[in-house]
Design a protein around this nucleic acid. Structure first.
Lengths: 183, 183
DNA sequence: GATTATACCTAACGTACGTTAGATAAGTAG
DNA sequence: CTACTTATCTAACGTACGTTAGGTATAATC
């Protein structure tokens, strides 16, 4: 018996491999080899390859999403969204990989319909919250809908550029871009 | 001898498969079967699976990119970018699939380093052109850098949402969003 | 001390992959 | 008519995949 918590080790390595090579490009053999364990150990902790992938998205990706969305505090709206983006930039490398995997599924570049449906449900639940948050701060409420839409597009691309393309931005740069949209 | 131009048929089916299932999830067997030809016929027209993928990105994806970028006509800047996005929305389904494949490679979700390098070179060449285009139209030139950066982020996300997530927008919606950024 | 549960293993199963060798049939050129 | 080229095929090679059957050693429980 060794038991040095092999399960999270396998998961970390799986995250890294799914990220680099996609679902189909990742093999149980490689995961086992990098985790320095035998192939059946992967099956000891995870029912199947699909199960391993699903657990990462369903547990770990959504945990990050929910945690980051829960940090609500809305004195200054530009400040709030700037911090939101900064928090994502300051995620650990591991969490960024999980986030990147999630985006891949969100864009239906990987994963399956079941996971995609979960993400679309999440998205549908989060847009009205942004709306509520922004609306009271607008000078011209007639433009509210357009501004929220534009903001969502900008946020999505900022997150993607940080998490997927691994780029960094200064707080000033983030704030400037958000200010252009939020007026 | 049959010769009903099998090569483009194989390519169309390959585009569809690479799109739906990724590089690793796509098999030569499936392509051959859907093209209603034998497996060696795929190898008759394309050196290898990798070669087939490379040809799609190198020829077809960049052809679309260059063609769309060449439509330059800059009387009104909001008008210009609105039309740019509309043109992309009006691409054929086939060309959208190729575009989607390209984005996948651009985000390093598929493909390899060689293709990614080509895309980064393209991106580096295109940003200064946007700069030149926008600069003369700005009221406040001190904000030029931020505006170009924000515009690039917005454009990228609009394109992604159209091509990757298959969403549609009206001309009015596109124009409104661009106006928020371009002032 | 015997039994059970846990954490691990070696070895293999059946399947599917990318690729190729080698044959064939039909037009084309001499 | 013969030789060559082009477009197609069947069959198979070697490799790698996801998964599982069945075993072993250690620790905990009765």
């Amino acid at each position: 018996m060794t038991d040095q918590d092999l399960k999270p080790i396998i998961k970390r390595i799986a995250v890294d491999n799914f990220n680099r090579n996609g679902y189909h490009g990742t093999t149980i053999r490689t995961i086992a080899s990098e985790a320095e364990c035998s192939i059946p150990m992967v099956y000891y902790y995870f029912k199947s390859k699909k199960d391993l992938f699903h657990e990462i998205i369903k547990n770990d990706y959504f945990a990050i999403l929910k945690r980051e969305a829960a940090r609500l505090d809305t004195k200054d709206i530009v400040d709030f969204y700037t911090r939101f983006i900064l928090n994502i930039m300051n995620l650990s490398e591991y969490e960024k990989k999980i986030y990147r995997l999630g985006i891949k599924v969100y864009l239906s570049f990987d994963g399956d319909e079941e996971l995609l449906a979960l993400m679309e449900a999440w998205e549908a639940s989060i847009i009205p919250r942004h709306y509520q948050l922004i609306f009271p701060h607008l000078k011209d409420p007639s433009k509210a809908e357009t501004i929220v839409r534009t903001l969502m597009h900008l946020l999505e691309n900022l997150i993607e550029s940080i998490v997927v393309k691994n780029r960094t931005m200064t707080e000033k740069e983030i704030r400037e871009e958000l200010s252009i949209v939020l007026g």
